[in-house]
C-alpha cells in the first residue's frame, strides 16, 4: 500500500455526477430549442453552431497545448462545446462566418482561457463573445431573418452556406428582402416613432403573445430549462428570479400605460430572455452560488433586461445584463452567505 493511497481522504465513494455529464445534459436540454430555431430561421442556425463549436474547440485545444495542459482530457469536459453552441444560438443565422469564428475564439481564448480556463472566468464567455460582435459589427449583428412562417420561403442549405461564406445576399436579392428586424427591434423603432402598441401589434412579426416564431423557440428552450431543473443541473432560483422580476417590472409599466409598454409576455417570448434565464444566467462559473445570492442575481438581471430594452441603446439586453451581474456576483455571494447550522439567525454570516 503506497503512501499516496493512504493519504487519500474520505469519502471513498463518489457520486455519478461529473463536469462532462453536466455539460452533456446542458447540450441535450438545448436540442429542442435549437431545433425550433432551425425550423423557423433555417439552415444558418446549424451552420453557425458548427462554426462556433468547431472554432471554440480548436481554440481551446490550441490554448491548452500552449499552456501545457492535458488537451484531450480537458476538451472532454465539453465546456467549449457549450460555449460555442450558446454563442451560435444568440447570433443572427446569416452572420458572415468569420464574425462567428471571431466571437467564438474571443470567448474561449480571451474570456475563458486567459483567466485560467474553466472555473476561473469571471464573465460568461458566450455572452462576452456576443457583446464583442454586437459592438463591433452592429449591422450584421442586427440583420436577423424573418421567421419562415412569415416569409413562407426557405433558404436552401447551399444558399445559406453561400451567404455565410461569401457575405453576400442571395443572387438577385438585396439584404432588405432576406433580412428582417427582430420583434424587439421592431418594437423599439416603432415606439421611438411614437407608434402605439396596438398599431405595432398589427405587424406580421407578432405572434400570439410574443414575437412570431420566437415565442415557440422560447417555449422549447423553456422545456429544456425545466429539464435541467428536473435533473438538478441548475437551480430554479436564477431563472425564476430573473423571469419573475422581468415580468413584474414589465407588468408594472404595462399596467401604467398599455400603449407605450408592451404586454409582459412579450418581454419573455420575443428575445433571448428564456434562453438567457435557463442557460446563460445559470452558468455556474460566473453566477452567484448562495441561494439568496442567486435570487438577487437573477432578479437584478431581469430588472436590467427591462431597463436596457426600454431605455437603453440596444434592443435586447440579456447579454449586457448577465455580464453586468457577473461583475457583481462575488460581492453578492459575500453578503448573502447562508446562516450555518446552529448559528443564531440575525448574527452575521
Amino acid at each position: 500500500m503506497n503512501k499516496l493511497e493512504i493519504s487519500i481522504s474520505s469519502p471513498h465513494l463518489s457520486g455519478p455526477q461529473s463536469v462532462t455529464r453536466v455539460m452533456a445534459l446542458v447540450l441535450l436540454a438545448l436540442v429542442p430549442g435549437t431545433l425550433a430555431l432551425l425550423w423557423y430561421f433555417g439552415w444558418g442556425v446549424i451552420i453557425n453552431i458548427a462554426l462556433a463549436v468547431g472554432s471554440a474547440v480548436v481554440a481551446e485545444a490550441i490554448v491548452l497545448r500552449l499552456r501545457g495542459r492535458a488537451v484531450a482530457d480537458t476538451l472532454l469536459d465539453l465546456s467549449a462545446v457549450v460555449t460555442g453552441w450558446l454563442l451560435a444560438l444568440a447570433l443572427p443565422p446569416l452572420l458572415p462566418w468569420w464574425q462567428t469564428v471571431l466571437g467564438s475564439v474571443f470567448a474561449i481564448v480571451i474570456v475563458k482561457q486567459l483567466y485560467g480556463g474553466i472555473g476561473f472566468n469571471p464573465f460568461n464567455p458566450a455572452m462576452a463573445g456576443y457583446v464583442l460582435l454586437l459592438v463591433s459589427f452592429p449591422v450584421t449583428m442586427t440583420r436577423w431573418l424573418a421567421p419562415e412562417v412569415i416569409t413562407g420561403q426557405a433558404l436552401s442549405f447551399a444558399d445559406s452556406l453561400h451567404i455565410i461564406f461569401a457575405g453576400l445576399p442571395p443572387a438577385g436579392q438585396t439584404w432588405d428582402v432576406v433580412s428582417s428586424a427582430t420583434p424587439l427591434d421592431l418594437m423599439r423603432s416603432e415606439l421611438s416613432q411614437n407608434h402605439m402598441i396596438s398599431e405595432i401589434r398589427s405587424s406580421p412579426l407578432w405572434g400570439d403573445y410574443g414575437g412570431r416564431g420566437w415565442e415557440w423557440v422560447g417555449n422549447w428552450f423553456l422545456l429544456g430549462g425545466l429539464f435541467l431543473i428536473w435533473q438538478r443541473v441548475i437551480s430554479w432560483r436564477i431563472p425564476v428570479a430573473m423571469l419573475g422580476s422581468l415580468l413584474l417590472v414589465a407588468g408594472l409599466f404595462w399596467a401604467i400605460d398599455h400603449e407605450t409598454h408592451p404586454f409582459p409576455a412579450f418581454h419573455l417570448f420575443s428575445g433571448g430572455a428564456i434562453l438567457g434565464a435557463f442557460f446563460i444566467a445559470t452558468d455556474p462559473v460566473s453566477a452567484c452560488t448562495t441561494p439568496r445570492g442567486q435570487l438577487v442575481y437573477g432578479a437584478l438581471i431581469g430588472l436590467f433586461v427591462f431597463i436596457i430594452r426600454t431605455w437603453g441603446g440596444y434592443p435586447d439586453a440579456v447579454a449586457f445584463s448577465v455580464l453586468l451581474m457577473n461583475m457583481a456576483a462575488p460581492t453578492i455571494d459575500y453578503y448573502t452567505q447562508p446562516r450555518i447550522f446552529g448559528q443564531r439567525s440575525g448574527s452575521d454570516g
Binding site: V19, V22, S79, I118, G119, S235, P284, V285, T289, T290
Partner: peptide, 8 residues
C-alpha cells in the same frame, strides 16, 4: 477537474 462553482 477545476471547480465549476455549481454549488451542489
Amino acid at each position: 477537474r477545476p471547480c465549476i462553482r455549481c454549488g451542489e
